[in-house]
């Protein structure tokens, strides 16, 4: 009978340092616990959000129907004037996100095409870090810039524009999400095989035709994923909105009006120091849950698309 490798090893005394093995097992356990922190974090996020959100809906003053359909959101007001319809916050968020995407998508995709396909390697090496700096500017600084620099200029151009408005916030946010769109799109365009580009060149396509008719379509899923991720970031962005778009929940599609977003409401409620367990505090968690679910769905969609696309050229 053949000895197993383990038996063989023991026979010649390799496996005798048991203490070393125990040490290794202990280290393995510690590292495993470190990795588990992320799982614990997720559970904690979900638990903290849902516990208070459930309390929110169990409150006799609130109904799920009202939450979904009412067009007024005033949970921090006195009891007689309280309304709990989240739609103004959703609409406000969409207003800002819309402006951000209108600005960010063409700019992000354009710069990605330039950096991936037209710029020399040297230009790319110089510009990419600068875009990273743009991505790294704290959003409170971008909010300051939107409020004190962009808004005054816009108010000279657009009549009836409020001091706090989604256009100014969205414009600056468009630049904030530009590096996200750009870097993911560059990656997915660079992943398009050379062979396919050459095939197009061989058919008499010009450089631009290769880019527009072959590279961009082939990288489309990655590009779309970058748009979705950027949208998720715009929805979750707080400081630019809190500083430049205001905190007045309004059900309006007029981009000149002061609005409130889900995030700016959360800031407002938190700053107001709502006592734990009050309806105002619970409203904060309910809005937080909505925000969390919305961004989670977008992130999962974006990840799914990227994964499917990654398999395609394997």
């Amino acid at each position: 009978m053949q000895p197993t490798p383990k038996q063989a090893a023991e026979a010649i005394g390799i496996n005798k340092s048991i203490s070393r093995n125990v040490g290794d097992q202990l280290i393995r356990l510690v590292l495993f616990l470190a990795a588990s922190v992320s799982v614990v974090t997720t559970i904690a996020v979900v638990y903290s959000l849902s516990a208070e959100t459930i309390s929110f809906f169990l409150d006799p003053a609130v109904s799920l129907w009202e939450f979904l359909t009412d067009r007024r959101w005033t949970p921090l007001f006195g009891e007689s004037q309280r309304y709990f319809g989240i739609s103004p916050l959703i609409i406000g968020t969409l207003n800002v996100t819309f402006v951000a995407l209108v600005v960010g998508i063409p700019l992000g995709l354009g710069s990605a095409i330039y950096l991936s396909e037209f710029a020399t390697a040297r230009t790319r090496r110089t510009i990419m870090p600068l875009l990273e700096i743009l991505a790294g500017i704290p959003t409170v600084v971008l909010g300051y810039f939107a409020l004190f620099f962009v808004t005054p200029i816009l108010r000279d151009i657009i009549p009836g524009l409020n001091l706090f408005n989604p256009i100014s916030a969205g414009l600056v946010m468009g630049f904030m999400i530009l590096p996200t769109i750009s870097s993911i799109s560059v990656d997915s365009m660079q992943a398009v095989p050379r062979a396919i580009r050459e095939a197009a060149y061989g058919l008499g396509a010009s450089r631009v035709e290769v880019v527009l008719k072959v590279v961009v379509p082939a990288a489309l899923s990655g590009i779309v994923a970058s748009f979705i991720l950027a949208m998720s970031r715009a929805i979750g962005e707080t400081m630019i909105v809190a500083l430049a778009a205001g905190a007045k929940p309004t059900f309006t599609f007029d981009l000149r009006e002061t609005i409130a977003t889900m995030t700016s409401f959360i800031v407002q409620a938190a700053k107001g120091d709502q006592p734990a367990g009050s309806i105002g505090s619970r409203a904060l968690y309910a809005v937080g849950s909505t925000l969390f679910l919305l961004t989670l769905m977008l992130n999962i969609a974006s990840n799914q698309i990227v994964r499917r696309y990654a398999e395609r050229y394997e």
């Binding site: 992320s38 997720t42 903290s48 995030t263 959360i266 992130n299 990840n303």
Partner: peptide, 17 residues
Amino acid sequence: LNIRNLAGVPSIVYGIL
């Protein structure tokens, strides 16, 4: 998967946590 998803959670949600 968890880590990937956590990376995309808006920072303000960490504040709520």
